[in-house]
């Protein structure tokens, strides 16, 4: 019998450039079948993709809410060009839903109003929590490279201030953002002439070392890990630290099944080891990793049971 964990599950925004129909159908399926509490939607990586999804926000939002999910809108992570700025301003003007901010330009618009802080904003410590909570922040999804001790300090402060902390427990780990589009560059194009080449890679473009070793994943201006993070064995630790929400980041795998595995682990219906094995089957060749949590290189997988707490 494993312990029950009282926490919520969040589905993060789709980070890749999925075809619009596939994107909508994915959310319809999530709405109807996935045991998640909150779903974050909205283009987070590239302003050029946003026009394909914006017309669908309304129907996707309605379907998710009909499925009992709370909908939160995400802002762009890298904001520089006039187009980026207009999109952020427009998302931040949404009044009936919370917005998750991924850079300081979002904070410019939302200071003084309730909002969430996304994982691409640097919430590394309790001073950031204190500063932003005073200005309206409610939920902090911490950066991927956070180590356990830092997560614990952030959660303690947030909880004392009536805020919640969220940690991504599944999906690729975002490692860098750039002004340059690396997807376009891989095809000898630039951002202005990209012809939406990122659409061909629904799970990102795999980058290998010169020795052929899988290494990183390109997604437009974003660089992610090759592996998916898997903190299913660390859920009890996270809950003890005061982390109230676990985030699943959508990959091109059966995300309903992934959500069900995490929910089962939280409900004590399966052990972490069973969950980990099921996840391995669901993700195919992609390795699972949890190194950052243990202040180790992020690609490593540490057997939690072997770690002395």
């Amino acid at each position: 019998m494993t312990e029950k964990i009282s926490a919520e599950l969040t589905l993060g925004p789709v980070l890749y450039n999925w075809k619009a129909d596939a994107w909508r159908d994915f959310y319809f399926k999530i709405a109807d079948e996935a045991p998640v509490d909150t779903v974050v939607i909205g283009e987070t990586i590239c302003y050029k993709r946003a026009p394909f999804f914006e017309p669908l926000y309304g129907e996707v939002m309605e379907r998710l809410e009909a499925g009992g999910k709370t909908v939160v809108f995400s802002t762009l992570a890298e904001v520089m060009l006039p187009h980026d700025r207009r999109i952020v301003e427009s998302i931040c003007s949404i009044e009936d839903h919370l917005v998750e901010v991924n850079d300081a330009s979002g904070l410019y618009h939302l200071t003084g109003k309730p909002h969430n802080i996304g994982p691409l904003f640097n919430t590394y410590n309790e001073e950031v929590v204190k500063t932003l909570a005073k200005r309206g922040a409610k939920n902090f999804c911490v950066p991927h490279e956070m180590r356990a001790t830092a997560i614990e300090a952030v959660a303690k402060e947030a909880n004392a201030l009536g805020c919640t902390v969220e940690v991504q427990v599944f999906g690729r780990q975002s490692l860098a953002l750039s002004a340059r589009c690396y997807h376009a560059r891989a095809h000898d194009r630039i951002k202005d002439t990209c012809q939406f080449v990122c659409e061909d890679d629904p799970d990102g473009l795999n980058l290998r070392t010169l020795e052929g070793q899988p290494f990183l994943t390109i997604n437009g201006v974003q660089v992610l890990s090759n592996d998916y993070v898997d903190l299913i064995a660390e859920l009890p630790d996270l809950a003890r630290m005061g982390v109230a929400r676990f985030r699943l980041s959508p990959q091109n795998v059966d995300m309903v099944a992934v959500a069900k595995v995490y929910r089962a682990a939280m409900d004590g219906d399966i052990t972490a080891a069973e969950g980990h094995e099921t996840l391995k089957d669901l993700v195919g060749d992609t390795p699972l990793a949890n190194g950052f949590f243990y202040q180790q290189p992020g690609y490593r997988f540490i057997d939690g049971d072997a770690v002395v707490h």
Binding site: E78, S174, L175, S178, A179, R180, P297, G298
Partner: peptide, 21 residues
């Protein structure tokens, strides 16, 4: 560097030592 400084964990990912922290 083209990566956004302060928003890059590539070195952390490989070494376990964080550029940001």
């Amino acid at each position: 560097g083209m990566m956004k400084e302060g928003r890059c964990a590539l070195s952390t990912y490989v070494t376990g030592e964080s550029t940001n922290m």
